[in-house]
Computed example of a mutant assay.
Amino acid sequence: MASVSVETLRTWLESGLPVTILDVRPASAYAAWSIPGSQHLDAYEALKSGQTGGLEELELPADRPVVTVCEAGQVSQRAAALLTARGFTAYSLEGGMRAWSLAWNTAPVLPDPGVCGQPEAARRAQAPEQRHVIQIRRTGKGCLSYLISDGTAALVLDPALDPAVYQQQARQRGWQITAVLETHIHADHLSRARALAESCGASLLLPAQQRVAFPFIPVADGQQLAIGRLHLQALRTPGHTPESTCYLLPGPPGTPALLFSGDTLFPEGLGRPDLDADTEEARRRAEMLYASLQHLLTLPDNTILLAAHSARPLPFDGQPVLTTLAAVRTWLVPLLASPAVFSTQMLSNLPTPPAHYQEIIAANESGDWPAIPPEELEGGPNRCAVRL
């Protein structure tokens, strides 16, 4: 049975090739996370039992390939075979949604100089403010990382993909990755920060803490971090984790600053305070988060918020996930009536924890890559946010 790899499907979607993606998983699994633009047919149980599940009469466009999807890439093979018998060019997605969790795409936050090919002086003249920011997104997982550059030096923030992805993105723009930085110790994905720093000879920077067991350069509250001619200011914002830190990238006069908020503050939610914490510690962290949010709200309204995760699958549309602090105020300020009320609301609205979060935290603290494949540890939707 013909199959297609995650990288091939990712390339098709990124290039705009017409393709029908047919997800045959149960409705609950599809609702939890899916490939953007996919079509759903709840045929999983029927296909497992040797039935057709409605595929014999399903109407699909005949002028494009069909890629069938299930959880691990096995039941989808049966779906692809049935569609092939009907005359469609059908493929099964290798590894299913587990493998798709490693798919990625990009979106420019600020004007992107694109592929290197013109003199550096000309490229700088086109973007005189010297801030370049590319949002690199794990589309199925919702992880958002950032490639930040002054046009020469570059920093990667919260890498969640194979180091080669970031190196390729920097290389094609003529940038050199000189530093790798994290906002906090992640619980929903394996950090690639240490591996990326080692592979390109860059400095590895983490918020100051005593959780990790490998060497790094600690970042303190208020510290200025240089990226060539740019400077990021560290803003310690404990709550989601004790060491959580946001980073502020100012712009030229008259332009908004960029706030890289990690898992502290999302466009439509807040970082959960309960992972790897007992009830008392979770409440203490919620109160810390309350104070951290009050601090962030002192920033100007036009500050652009760039978080480390999205709660939805990310389409191949080139549109970055962002908002302004003004937009966040409309729903956040009413929640901050008092620390006690805020903490109670946070802890009574917690979603299901990410799968395998304890193993992921342990790996990110030790720096040892686990024996379990990342697609098995990291599979499933993002569950780091609390929406109130």
Results as ranks from 00 to 15, higher is better:
Val6Leu: 06
Trp12Cys: 10
Trp12Phe: 15
Leu17His: 03
Thr20Arg: 08
Ile35Gln: 10
Ile35Val: 15
His40Gln: 14
Gln51Leu: 13
Gly53Asp: 15
Glu56Ile: 01
Leu60Ile: 14
Asp63Thr: 09
Cys70Gln: 04
Cys70Tyr: 13
Arg78His: 06
Ala80Asp: 06
Leu83Gly: 07
Ala90Met: 04
Ser92His: 01
Gly95Ser: 14
Met97Arg: 13
Trp100Lys: 05
Gln118Met: 04
Pro119Ile: 03
Ala122Asp: 03
Gln126Ala: 07
Gln130Phe: 08
Val133Leu: 12
Thr139Val: 15
Thr139His: 01
Gly140Arg: 02
Cys143Tyr: 08
Ser145Leu: 04
Ala153Ile: 01
Pro159Arg: 05
Leu161Arg: 06
Arg173Pro: 07
Gln176Phe: 00
Ala179Tyr: 00
Leu181Ala: 05
Ile185Ala: 13
Ile185Cys: 15
Asp188Ala: 06
His189Pro: 05
Ala195Asn: 04
Leu196Trp: 13
Ala202Lys: 00
Leu204Arg: 03
Gln210Leu: 12
Gln210Ala: 05
Ala213Met: 09
Val219Asn: 14
Gln223Val: 14
Leu225Cys: 09
Ile227Glu: 08
Leu230Lys: 13
Ala234Phe: 02
Thr241Cys: 08
Glu243Gly: 07
Thr245Gln: 04
Leu249His: 05
Gly251Asp: 15
Gly254His: 09
Thr255Pro: 00
Thr255Met: 10
Pro267Met: 10
Gly269Gln: 03
Gly271Thr: 12
Arg272Ala: 10
Glu281Ala: 13
Ala286Asn: 03
Thr298Phe: 09
Ile304Ala: 13
Leu306Gln: 14
Asp317Met: 13
Ala327Ser: 14
Arg329Leu: 12
Trp331Arg: 14
Val333Arg: 11
Pro334Gly: 10
Leu336His: 12
Ala337Cys: 09
Phe342Pro: 00
Ser343Gln: 10
Met346Asn: 04
Leu347Lys: 00
Thr352Tyr: 05
Pro353Tyr: 12
Ala355Arg: 00
Ala362Gln: 11
Gly367Met: 02
Asn382Lys: 11
